[in-house]
């Protein structure tokens, strides 16, 4: 990436702009979680906003916007592919097998309800 004094000064302005965007998107995430979307809409919206925030961090703070080396990009592309596989596979498998799990499968996992405590979520808005 270019690194003259003037270029870095421009970058600093960009960093501040990205910070404002990240802070704003965090507020949007909280507000969106309180909207009653139909079906899995709230999951899609929350992960979409998180994806935009992650892209901003990776592109600007981690300098990928200016990165030209294939030695960095190709491992990341491979990594992104397997990450998508990791996220997709359990969704497909779990929804397929949820109602066909052998009797007692979930009984082996503790399901005690957590005791109440003062650091709770009474004001969560849900």
């Amino acid at each position: 990436m270019a690194d003259s004094h003037a270029d870095i000064s421009k970058h600093v302005k960009l960093y501040i702009g990205v910070f404002a965007a990240l802070a704003g998107l965090t507020i949007v995430t909280v507000l969106a979680s309180q909207v009653d979307f139909s079906g899995p809409g709230h999951v899609v919206v929350a992960l979409l906003i998180a994806g935009i925030k992650a892209t901003l961090v990776a592109a600007v703070f981690m300098h990928l916007k200016w990165e030209r080396s294939g030695w960095i990009w190709w491992p990341l592309v491979l990594c992104a592919f397997f990450f998508v596989v990791l996220m997709t596979l359990p969704t497909l498998v779990a929804t397929e097998s949820r109602d066909r799990a052998p009797a007692g499968t979930w009984d082996t996992i503790p399901v005690r309800e957590a005791p109440a405590h003062s650091g709770g979520n009474a004001e969560s808005g849900h």
Partner: peptide, 12 residues
Amino acid sequence: PTHEQTHLSWKI
């Protein structure tokens, strides 16, 4: 568990 049962505050 529901949000009430997880005891996590979005504010924190």
